[in-house]
């Protein structure tokens, strides 16, 4: 396996608290990799550390075989790696139109033919050009998340970091956004790293996954193993039970 992105003994510390404790993962090009765990397990911190949004205290991150600087990411990095955040209400600038939001990454990276790319990006996420001059408050949660995905895709990255991209959405809208993410991954041969607390979503989207707890990876397994119940850690079993939903005792 040739890893496009890997973390080796990565540690993130906030004062005395270790949010990530010597975590190592390897992600192959074109793969979809899931991170699961309860809140505070470090799954989002791992994504944020890769994106340069968390202070790295030890270990290193390799992209295409080259180590990244611990606390700086250059423009080339963001050309390759883009992120979609959890809350579509918080991640779009409230006073910018969709057009302005999508111009920003193009301006940063000096991309020409903005006009064509914006129209294409909107089309790709299924919104169409009529949404171009709207503000984010004029959009529903699902539409906002589509804009966030369009903003990440517009500079044609290779790796997408997805931090709970559908947990703030209704179940019916979640299905639409998951389908969209699968579609663009297939069309553009993207690599995904996806964080979710929902095992159903992760096994649907990802081939392999890592289970995290207290800043450590406790188990690595394939989605097929998870579905078949081939797991070794009690913690993963608990997550499985929780994902099956409420069952009345004695019923």
């Amino acid at each position: 396996m040739t890893a496009i992105l890997s973390a080796e003994n990565l540690t993130v510390a906030y004062d005395d608290f270790l949010a990530l404790d010597t975590v190592s993962i390897e992600i192959a090009a074109g793969e979809s990799f899931g991170l699961v765990g309860e809140s505070g397990s470090g799954k989002s911190t791992l994504l944020r550390a890769v994106a340069g949004l968390a202070p790295i205290a030890g270990g290193r991150i390799m992209l295409d075989g080259k180590p990244l600087d611990a606390n700086r990411r250059d423009r080339d990095f963001y050309r390759k790696v883009q992120m979609v955040f959890q809350d579509p209400y918080g991640s779009l600038h409230p006073r910018q139109t969709v057009d302005r939001l999508l111009q920003e990454p193009l301006a940063i990276h000096g991309v020409k033919d903005a006009e064509r790319r914006i129209l294409r990006a909107l089309d790709e996420v299924g919104l169409g050009s009529s949404f171009r001059f709207r503000y984010s408050h004029q959009l529903s949660g699902g539409q906002r998340q589509r804009i966030a995905i369009a903003r990440a895709l517009i500079i044609e990255p290779q790796i997408m970091l997805l931090d709970e991209p559908t947990s703030a959405l209704d179940a019916s809208v979640q299905a639409e956004v998951l389908n969209l993410l699968e579609q663009v991954r297939r069309d553009r041969k993207l690599t995904y790293i996806m964080v979710s607390h929902d095992l159903g979503v992760v096994t649907h989207m990802c081939e392999r996954l890592a289970v995290m707890k207290n800043g450590k990876v406790v188990e690595r397994l394939s989605s097929a193993d998870l579905v078949a119940g081939r797991l070794s850690e009690d913690y993963t079993k608990n997550l499985m039970v929780a994902s099956k939903g409420f069952v009345r005792e004695g019923a």
Binding site: A175, L178, N179, E182, G200, H204, V227
Partner: peptide, 12 residues
């Protein structure tokens, strides 16, 4: 429309 463990439906 919910993805569940053990069912493979692409697209949902």
């Amino acid at each position: 429309c919910m993805p569940t463990l053990g069912t493979s439906r692409h697209p949902l």
